[in-house]
């Protein structure tokens, strides 16, 4: 039984890898081509919509829950999370968002910042 496992990589592995990359890239390109700038940003906490803000004007919004704080900044039509007291800082390091469907998520605070039409 041990002998037949000796191949490190088989032809089928390469086919699998290429197939996954091609499918993912096609989907990625499709999303890139069909994306459009959003009009509003929707801030949800624990699945419930907390606030919806227009992207047209610059605005700063502080989210404070018993789980922690996040600072959301809207400037020139793009949304960014600039400060957070969560341990992983994933939301703070996230790139800015502006197209419909894009999100910034803070898992520890159950916060979802999402661009909507």
């Amino acid at each position: 039984m041990k002998q037949e496992e000796s191949a490190i990589i088989k032809k089928s592995d390469i086919v699998l890898l290429v197939a996954i990359l091609v499918i993912a890239l096609i989907t990625f390109v499709y999303i890139m081509l069909t994306k459009k700038p959003g009009a509003k940003v929707q801030i949800s906490i624990d699945g419930k919509v907390e606030k919806t803000i227009s992207l047209d004007e610059d605005y700063e919004y502080q989210v404070t829950t018993d789980m922690g704080n996040n600072r959301i900044v809207i400037k020139d039509g793009v949304v960014d999370v600039t400060a957070a007291d969560c341990p992983d800082k994933v939301c703070e390091n996230h790139v800015t968002i502006k197209n419909v469907g894009e999100t910034i998520i803070c898992l520890p605070h159950k916060l979802v910042v999402e661009i909507v039409e």
Binding site: A24, I31, S44, E102, T103, I105, L107, K110, E114
Partner: peptide, 13 residues
């Protein structure tokens, strides 16, 4: 947990 389907977009990356 977040009740948000759009997170699925991350799956592509």
């Amino acid at each position: 947990t977040l009740e948000n389907m759009n997170i699925m977009y991350y799956m592509i990356v």
